[in-house]
Design a binder for these strands. Structure first.
Lengths: 230, 230
DNA sequence: TGCAGTCAACTTGCATACAAGATTCCACAA
DNA sequence: TTGTGGAATCTTGTATGCAAGTTGACTGCA
């Protein structure tokens, strides 16, 4: 097998995040990764530096690398950024869309297959990748890259804040968006997309923590789970 | 002086690109940078990996690192992405804007000072940073980061394709945008912003090369400069 | 038992050594 | 003069060694 490059390792990590196989806060030891990919720490380190630049991991000096845990504010910022970019992309939908729609339909078919099956990792990946795919198909390569990072971030938030949004519902919403696109209803597609992103965002348990201060999290975490002592 | 970290080095390189002190295609030797920052190649390499992940530099195996030279298509994609993000940010301008406007006015004052002075690097940096500042002030931290990368890319394109857009005109356009924002004219601000970005994009000499194929550039470059032989 | 202090193990940070490929320059021959 | 072969040089790619800091455990003491 070809020796793993930093790019290859970084890509695999991003995929793992998108597939919810890597949880926020999870530790990524340099040596451990090096053993897994059968390379030296140097290569792993370069990959981690790339991931750090994209905001996926952070390092605590001499303690270790960790997958980022987006704060409530950061999660909301990511959702907000996605809303702006994705609706902006739909806005400029004046071109021949048939090829785009065909491709998105194929993607949705894959989603359905993954939902029917038991592979929750593929399912999670495809549901996030739909949005990247949309951007790419509309000809926005740079925004597609940006959206990959943003969806990874919202995926981390979804894991962290225990999203209750179901896969099949997400998939159905994707279908409705494409249907609106097909009938040329740009405004409708935008509305459905906003609704879709809003659904995912609201399904996170961060409503009460919106104005949270750094210190509050610890206090909230350490507060008694049951209000009344036994 | 504190030894330079990879982050520090990467930041300096991005600043240099924004200030047009680093031209597209310019070589960035690992050893050379290491000497400049007085660190080992390891640190420089980690910085370059971060910059590669953000799309600023690319490496040719065992040849060297080079500042990216955006193709015509890539430049247009960057401008397109900026249009979507920046108008999207203005769209959501319903909050108290006074603080934002005050801050932007201060930025514009800096621009004017740089334009009056002779420091073309600061001038170029500030003109690009206005857009980042706008995103940041509107509370979009992630989009501000994205815009920093995108403006760096359009700046590279501007250097590469010999933009003829004048600094004072850009600054005046910034002023008009803020003025529209101040009078609550969101749509007007969006229109002015689109016009501003369009002006910069159209000032590049890539119109005739829009549908350019890889081989065409060489032929065009090697074509006789004067149509008629002496 | 409780607690303070020390030490060992583990992790990242950084520099260096060497491997491997690309380029350049120069000698030499046609 | 021109083209070719090859060595010397330069560049990145990768591994490894050591330094420095953090954590956790263990020992000894009260």
């Amino acid at each position: 097998m070809t020796p793993a490059s930093p790019q290859h390792i970084a890509e695999r990590v991003v995929e793992a995040i998108l597939a919810q196989k890597l949880a926020p806060g999870e530790r990524l030891g340099e040596q451990e990764l090096a053993n897994n990919f059968d390379v030296s720490r140097t290569v792993v380190r370069e990959a981690l530096m790339q991931l750090q630049a994209r905001g996926f991991v952070q390092v605590q000096a001499r303690r270790g690398w960790y997958v980022v845990q987006p704060s409530a504010a950061e999660a909301m910022d990511a959702f907000s950024a996605r809303r702006i970019i994705e609706t902006g992309i739909l806005q400029e939908a004046g071109k021949p869309l048939q090829r785009v729609i065909t491709r998105l339909r194929r993607h949705i078919a894959q989603e359905q297959k993954a939902i029917a099956g038991a592979d929750s990792a593929t399912r999670s990946f495809l549901l996030a990748d739909f949005h990247v795919c949309l951007a790419e198909q509309m000809g926005h390569r740079l925004l597609a890259d940006t959206l990959r990072d943003l969806t990874a971030r919202t995926t981390l938030a979804a894991t962290l804040y225990q999203s209750t949004h179901s896969a099949s519902q997400s998939c159905a919403e994707h279908e409705r968006i494409v249907a609106a696109l097909e009938r040329g209803d740009t405004e409708g597609a935008k509305a459905l997309l906003l609704e879709h992103i809003g659904m995912v965002e609201r399904s996170l348990e961060i409503r009460a923590a919106e104005t949270e201060e750094p210190g509050d999290r610890l206090r909230a975490t350490l507060a008694p789970v049951l209000k009344q002592r036994l």
